[in-house]
């Protein structure tokens, strides 16, 4: 075991971890915003709109993230160039964050939908019969309760997203796993390096798991 290598690689690894956190955080925010929108689209009473929501969610959730990344980053610009003879330059970090956000939004949409649908139908009926408008019912009765229920699965999704961001190592983004690969490619010591990389991921994911468990415990009692 070459602990000296782990130690001497730490500044580079931490820099990679910083980019991992930044990309994941931004992708998560956009993922939650778009996910909420797509949850509402999916539950829309307008049939074609709901069908579009279902198609979006199923296509994204039913295909591997790695394939989506390659399609978006390598495939799309090439087809675009062939078709229109125009360059479609994606900054890798922007493209990578965007595809992560798109991917996450499909999972978030399902989390939000299940949260909303988990609120007993009787509450909505009671609220409407008491004279609340449908919008007020959603705003004051359903969403506050749904919000509590979706926080733990959303934190779960955030953990998944953080780990999934490692796939961006394939499109020139020097995030945590890529830093590990680059160091391994010159030191030939994969054990030490991926142990260090794994440890750094745990430093990020364990606090999120603890947070999710605490929130779940506190709100379940109430």
């Amino acid at each position: 075991m070459d602990f000296a290598l782990i130690w001497s690689s730490m500044p580079l690894l931490l820099k990679g971890a910083g980019l991992t956190i930044a990309i994941s955080a931004i992708a998560l925010i956009f993922g939650i915003v778009f996910g909420t929108v797509f949850a509402l689209i999916r539950m829309s009473p307008i049939k074609p709109l709901a069908a579009f929501g279902v198609a979006y969610i199923e296509i994204i959730r039913g295909t591997p993230l790695l394939a989506q990344i390659f399609l978006f980053f390598y495939g799309l610009p090439y087809v675009f160039q062939q078709a229109f003879d125009l360059p479609l330059n994606f900054n890798p970090v922007v493209a990578g964050t965007a595809i992560l956000a798109i991917n996450s939004s499909a999972y978030v949409a399902e989390i939000i939908r299940s949260g909303i649908q988990s609120i007993a139908r009787g509450q909505t009926e009671a609220s409407l019969s008491l004279g609340f408008t449908p919008t007020d019912t959603l705003r004051y009765i359903v969403l506050p309760q749904a919000f509590r229920r979706v926080i733990p699965p959303l934190l779960n999704e955030a953990t998944t997203l953080l780990k999934n961001s490692s796939l961006l190592s394939t499109i020139m983004i020097v995030e945590l796993v890529r830093v590990g690969q680059m160091i391994t490619s010159r030191t030939y010591k994969p054990f030490e390096m991926y142990l260090a990389v794994g440890f750094l991921y745990l430093c990020m994911t364990i606090p999120m798991s603890i947070m999710a468990a605490r929130i779940e415990k506190r709100w379940k009692v109430g």
Partner: peptide
Amino acid sequence: TDAAIAVQTQQI
């Protein structure tokens, strides 16, 4: 091969 596509499509 990925690098070649990236140069062709002006990503790099």
